[in-house]
């Protein structure tokens, strides 16, 4: 198998039980093809086209664009999120099928970035959504974005990319944080009906 590199082979040798091998194989297949929903929330959107087109060609890593959230594996949040956008992003994220991952690009999702004193952008993305991989930069170069995808693939292979489970387990925490900024204008309950079994109302 050409596609199995040295690191993969070494990992495979260490596995003991047959179930572990199955898990490993599932993760291996998952990481080979990552459909990306590039939600261009901010400036970072401008470095996505060079990443996915001819010059850097992210498709070499199995990364390509998805048409709708339902088909996407990873949502790329590229930069600051205005409050109005965050609402749409959360809804988009909740629509995605599991397994699902989040990549954040740039300074702004980490600690506000240069918009730290803006009244309309959120400062810490990981309070509202589980973020798997963060790439620093303003804006991250296409190389850095590719490294981000490689780090995500690594995380998937290790079986630690469990953002979606984290979101489901700690839904109270996330929803409370979201409520802090949205107030009584929360998202409708149907966007995460597995949580609101009664149809949902906040």
């Amino acid at each position: 198998m050409d596609n199995l590199n040295k690191k993969d082979k070494a990992q495979l040798k260490e596995l003991k039980s047959p179930m572990a091998v199955v898990d490993w194989a599932v993760n291996w297949f998952r990481k080979q093809s990552i459909f990306m929903l590039a939600y261009g929330t901010g400036c970072g959107a401008i470095e996505i086209p060079p990443t996915v087109t001819a010059r850097y060609d992210a498709e070499r890593f199995g990364v390509r664009g998805a048409a709708t959230p339902r088909q996407a594996d990873v949502i790329v949040l590229s930069g600051y999120l205005a409050v109005k956008t965050l609402k749409r992003v959360i809804r988009t994220y909740e629509q995605m099928q599991e397994p699902k991952y989040v990549i954040a690009l740039g300074s702004c999702p980490i600690n506000g970035g240069m918009y730290w004193d803006s009244y309309n952008t959120i400062k810490q993305l990981d309070r509202y959504l589980p973020v798997d991989v963060t790439v620093a930069g303003c804006m991250p170069r296409p190389e850095a974005v590719l490294e981000g995808f490689m780090a995500l693939k690594d995380k998937i292979q290790r079986g630690e990319a469990e953002g979606a489970r984290d979101y489901r387990d700690n839904i109270e925490k996330y929803k409370n944080n979201q409520k802090e900024i949205f107030g009584d204008k929360m998202l409708p309950g149907y966007t995460c009906d597995w949580y609101f079994s009664d149809g949902g109302s906040f």
Binding site: T41, A82, R88
Partner: peptide
């Protein structure tokens, strides 16, 4: 519109 509003004009004031 409003998905990308950051309030630049306020930030420049400061």
């Amino acid at each position: 519109v409003g998905y990308l509003h950051r309030g630049f004009e306020k930030m420049i004031e400061r």
